[in-house]
Design a protein around this nucleic acid. Structure first.
Length: 361
DNA sequence: TAGGCCATCTGGTCCT
DNA sequence: AGGACCAGATGGCCTA
């Protein structure tokens, strides 16, 4: 895989402490999810060894592990009671099986389950709309069908294919945004092949180029040199570790000011349709692309403020509670980063760090 | 006909 | 207690 741990940083700026805590709390409890995600990532061309395949097969059908009880006081007490009980009473009684639900409750439970599944399917449908047809292009090993309305194919993407394509699409967009030199090189040959054969992806690449160009222009030589000299006057220091924005960060706000207009709700580029979706209220986030980031300590955890990579999801994708859509016509939806992060829901609902990472990779 | 995909039912587990 | 979530089981539909 070309994607290393680096992208995790922009997944977890807000959620890193939460994710770490979740990873800690959910330790050893995510086997089924990880087996799912490992099977999802099996579309990667680099995951082809027989050993790995065999392992995946064995994982695919593995049962989920029983979760250890949460560390609530009541749970702790019950665990302690169980332990002491085991010590004193070697023969434990077989646990009484819960009686089956009444007909009424079984019916209502089924109805709820159907509703839940419908919501999931609805979210999948939104995701299908968001994934352009080309990501499933000829070089992809997914089914050769496109998103509805974008091609003549009437076939619907399966759920698993939709997830894979979404991951691939995000990867493509991330690759584009990760290239700061404007060369738009994508380090995944397979993705390059897909992108080069599709209008939508070409458009994305073009927008990426415009974005890079805009950022480059914004840092005009004269201003850049003056700022550079002022920066050079400061003594070299290690990345600051505090909660308030450092002087460097404030300086960087000037950079941002060159590029951004602001209304009450959002920041946007003076040039239309190319604004990074920075939350206007969070000064820590107001760093221009390509600047070095300083770290902060939040609750004893070192948190890396977002570089441009932190913004890459938000640039192209718009997310609400259960949908993920391309923002149109502009690249940026101009709303808050949290709401734009397609993993936001995952990160706030019990996914641990490893799961989120595997999903992203 | 086998295999993939899906919807639904069901029981277990966790959480509020 | 009841709801949410999850995964196994099952059967229907479709395609190669």
């Amino acid at each position: 895989m070309h994607h290393t741990l680096k992208p995790l940083g922009h997944l977890s700026f807000h959620q890193m402490p939460i994710m770490a805590a979740l990873a800690d709390a959910n330790n050893n409890s995510n086997s089924s999810i990880s087996s799912l995600t490992s099977s999802l990532s099996s579309s990667s061309p680099s995951s082809g060894s027989d050993e790995a395949m065999a392992k995946k097969d064995s994982e695919k059908y593995s049962l989920r592990q029983r979760q250890t009880r949460r560390s609530t006081p009541a749970a702790k007490a019950s665990v302690a009671a169980t332990v002491s009980e085991k010590k004193t009473v070697p023969k434990e009684k077989p646990k009484q099986k819960a009686p089956p639900l009444s007909k009424y409750r079984r019916k209502t439970a089924n109805a709820r389950e159907r509703t839940r599944m419908r919501e999931i399917n609805s979210a999948f449908e939104n995701l299908r709309q968001a994934v352009p047809v080309a990501v499933a292009g000829p070089s992809g090993n997914q089914s050769p069908v496109g998103s509805p309305g974008q091609s003549g194919a009437n076939e619907k993407l399966t759920k698993i294919t939709t997830l894979r394509l979404a991951m691939k699409y995000i990867r493509i967009l991330s690759d584009i945004l990760n290239n700061e030199d404007g060369s738009l090189m994508i380090d995944n040959n397979n993705d390059v092949d897909m992108v080069n054969h599709n209008d939508i992806e070409r458009e994305v690449m073009l927008k990426g180029a415009l974005l890079n160009e805009t950022i480059f222009k914004a840092k005009s030589p004269s201003k850049a040199s003056t700022r550079k000299s002022s920066r050079n006057s400061k003594p070299n220091k290690p990345p600051s570790l505090n909660l308030v924005p450092s002087l460097d960060a404030k300086d960087d706000l000037l950079d941002l000011g060159m590029m951004l207009d602001s209304d009450n709700d959002s920041l946007h580029l003076s040039e239309p349709c190319l604004s990074p979706p920075l939350p206007s209220t969070t000064s820590l986030h107001k760093q221009p692309f390509g600047t070095t980031s300083c770290n902060s300590i939040v609750g004893g955890t070192v948190v890396t403020p977002p570089s441009h990579a932190d913004l890459e999801f938000g640039l192209f994708l718009e997310s609400d509670a259960d949908s993920l859509q391309l923002s149109e016509p502009c690249l940026s939806p101009l709303s808050h980063l949290d709401s734009l992060n397609p993993f936001n829901d995952l990160l706030h609902t019990g996914f641990n760090e490893q799961t989120a990472l595997e999903l992203y990779l």
